[in-house]
């Protein structure tokens, strides 16, 4: 169930509570960024440093144990690139087509 952003007063949940936990996942913050992280998997050691230090929880682990940033949420802060012990992440300009 996705709550309406502009409900009528009758549609608004009781006491304007939000009954669905963690529904901010519907709210994509990826368009905030100007730079995006690019992971060089040939250098990645799969340590998870990028994942633990991401304030957005944008990093996701794939089936091979690599971590990659979900760009729908990544705000492009660059902490991951800075902290990566293998220095395998670079911040690159987002190209808008």
């Amino acid at each position: 169930m996705k709550l309406k952003e502009k409900p009528t007063w009758r549609e608004l949940p009781f006491a304007c509570c939000i009954p669905e936990p963690g529904n901010s996942v519907y709210y994509k913050t990826g368009d905030w960024k100007t730079l995006k992280p690019v992971v060089d998997k040939t250098k990645c050691i799969k340590c998870g440093t990028c994942w633990i230090f991401c304030p957005e929880y944008a990093y996701e682990e794939d089936e091979y144990g690599y971590f990659e940033s979900n760009l729908e949420y990544c705000k492009g802060c660059g902490i991951c690139a800075r902290e990566c012990p293998a220095q395998c992440i670079t911040m690159e300009e987002e190209v808008v087509e």
Binding site: K6, T8, W9, R10, L12, C16
Partner: peptide, 10 residues
């Protein structure tokens, strides 16, 4: 602002 008024009406 999109819901405050509706909350008060409720």
């Amino acid at each position: 602002p999109d819901i405050y008024t509706e909350a008060k009406k409720q």
